[in-house]
Design a protein around this nucleic acid. Structure first.
Lengths: 193, 193
DNA sequence: CGCGACGTTGATTTGCCTCAACGATTGTGG
DNA sequence: CCACAATCGTTGAGGCAAATCAACGTCGCG
């Protein structure tokens, strides 16, 4: 059974028949991406949605001063896309880069559209996926308002131990919205006690 | 044609036949909510999704110290819900309160489920609605990282003039994640020049 | 080995918060 | 319709969390 991880992930959102899972899986193609290679660059239109099988990606954007802001990371079992650019086929604000040698399943805009049309339950599936994603983005924004940098850091490493251990401090700091110098101080402030 | 605003809003996301719009509209019931009255309180389960016809609501949560954090506002033409609580029928973290005498269309969990089953295009509709919402939450989080409080304030009043003019500074400050004292200083810092 | 990216640490600065006191405005009951 | 309370907005003083800048140590890689 190919793409077991994808099938399992989908079934977690919405239990589907093996036949439907086959149909969906068939629309994806495997791509291997070497460390530091970009899957998407700002200004380009995002032609795919991805599901990570192996490795690690970061999704980031640039602010006015040209600083990289890490939006999120995707390791095995995570979805990966520039929703806005993919949906509207407009130039992307986002960059997607492999942080390790990685394997990712990609589905093109065309295949996705066909899939939506031919298998209506896929609409429900992604309705649920986006709905859940929305909840977690709302929660993240609340945490950014309520918690200190230190609290956000510890929440992150506890909530995503499998992600945080793969990342450099620089990338974690950017994700949390703090400077990497300050993150370094946070981490070392606990060793004293 | 009742609920014209709702039909127009839906058509903006996904053009539908009048028949489908009728079917959808029929699932909603009008509710009038007086100023300061709560549509939902934290701890209760959210039994509805709402679409605002008139007036203004705020959606907020409480942090550990009991401070109110305004998550977002909804005026006419905006959707209003605790996605998480509605989807899973679990107790809500959120409070929804009318800031003016308001009119809102509500759809119950049961009606929504039936609607999803009976009219598959509704899955697509809400898939698109949630997808777009997700994009705007991602953008908002980026703005919170990149922009200063002052820049965020001016972005807000320019992006949502019809909302910001209805709100007290206290509520805007909470939405922006700053103290109302500091917002007052931001507003007055421009008069000097 | 030597270079460049990353991490650490300290000094200094700054954006924003907290607290407090005081006007302004709104709402409400007599 | 006014008086008074309550809420909201303004302003200033002081403090703190986190940024910035700079110097230096360390590690991985070509």
């Amino acid at each position: 059974m190919p793409y077991h991880l994808l099938r399992e992930n989908i079934n977690n959102y919405l239990p589907l028949s093996n036949k439907d899972l086959d149909t969906i899986s068939d629309c994806f193609t495997l791509k291997e991406v070497s460390k530091k290679v970009f899957l998407l660059r700002g200004g380009k239109t995002c032609r795919f949605e991805g599901f990570v099988l192996e490795g690690c990606f970061r999704v980031f954007t640039l602010d006015q001063k040209g600083n990289e802001i890490n939006l999120y990371f995707a390791v095995e079992g995570w979805w990966l896309m520039d929703i806005d650019s993919f949906m509207n086929q407009t130039p992307s604000d986002l960059y997607i880069q492999a942080l390790e040698d990685s394997k990712v399943l990609l589905i093109s805009k065309e295949s996705k559209s066909k899939l939506y049309d031919s298998l209506p339950v896929v609409e429900k599936l992604f309705r649920i996926i986006f709905q859940k994603a929305l909840v977690s983005w709302q929660r993240r924004l609340i945490r950014n308002h309520c918690l200190t940098a230190k609290e956000r850091y510890f929440h992150f490493i506890e909530a995503y131990p499998n992600i945080s251990t793969k990342l450099s401090n620089k990338h974690i700091a950017s994700y949390l919205g703090i400077s990497h110098e300050f993150l370094s101080k946070i981490k070392n402030s606990n060793k004293a006690t």
